[in-house]
């Protein structure tokens, strides 16, 4: 099953390299979003708490602009029926999930680097905690946006519907991740932040289970 899923991921990866649609639009979106924030701030120096929140604002909207491609492109090209013939639903979901996880990690690393370079107050004091929350937050973001992308694709690729459906599902994750980023900026120890970390990890596990259970119903027409 895993070899098939990886083959599926490779297919997506190669078609992405050929068109570079998601990469280009995501990169441009990150630049646009950050420059809007920079223009809004102007010469003022903003507090640490605000940068932590703005960091997740950019991550959320970037994810919403690019991650629905995974399933929407299949519906647009009319290849989803072929995919249903060659692979089991769980395999398809695994392949798409791997692709989205890698995309989220690339995108968020770029956002984090840009933030560190452009915002004076975005200084991480507890790097270990930031890395932990970053990894688990990204995985959760990828899982939820992949399953919602599958729903959106079947609903007729309504672009505006994607953030509307994703936001309530992602809200617990975003709230705890904002809190964890603030802790990392303040330099709080991992011991103090373990409650929030536990929430993010359990969110990942629960969403992964629910997604695998329900994906069959979405995928089969």
């Amino acid at each position: 099953m895993l070899t098939k899923a990886i083959a599926l991921f490779k297919k997506d990866f190669h078609s992405e390299l050929r068109t570079r649609y998601a990469i280009n639009s995501l990169a441009m979106f990150i630049i646009v979003a950050i420059s809007v924030i920079m223009f809004a701030i102007g010469q003022e120096r903003i507090s640490e708490g605000l940068t932590g929140g703005l960091f997740w604002v950019v991550i959320f909207f970037t994810a919403m602009s690019g991650l629905s491609r995974a399933f929407v492109s299949e519906e647009e090209r009319g290849t989803s029926l072929t995919l249903q013939l060659v692979a089991a639903p769980s395999t398809v979901f695994t392949g798409k999930l791997i692709f989205n996880i890698i995309l989220v990690f690339c995108m968020n690393t770029i956002i984090a680097l840009l933030y560190a370079a452009l915002f004076e107050s975005f200084v991480i004091n507890n790097f270990g905690l930031f890395l932990l929350s970053f990894v688990f937050g990204n995985i959760g973001l990828a899982i939820s946006s992949t399953i919602i992308a599958a729903i959106i694709a079947k609903a007729g690729a309504k672009g505006t519907l994607y953030p509307v459906l994703s936001f309530p599902i992602l809200l617990p994750l975003i709230l705890s991740s904002v809190q964890l980023t603030l802790f990392a900026i303040d330099g709080t120890s991992i011991e103090t932040a373990k409650f929030e970390l536990a929430i993010v990890v359990s969110y990942d596990v629960i969403m992964l289970t629910v997604s695998y259970l329900l994906f069959d119903f979405i995928w089969k027409d």
Binding site: P168, I169, Y203, V210, S211
Partner: peptide, 11 residues
Amino acid sequence: SAVYSIIAFVT
């Protein structure tokens, strides 16, 4: 909508 309401309920 059934799938979505189950996912939402879990969160």
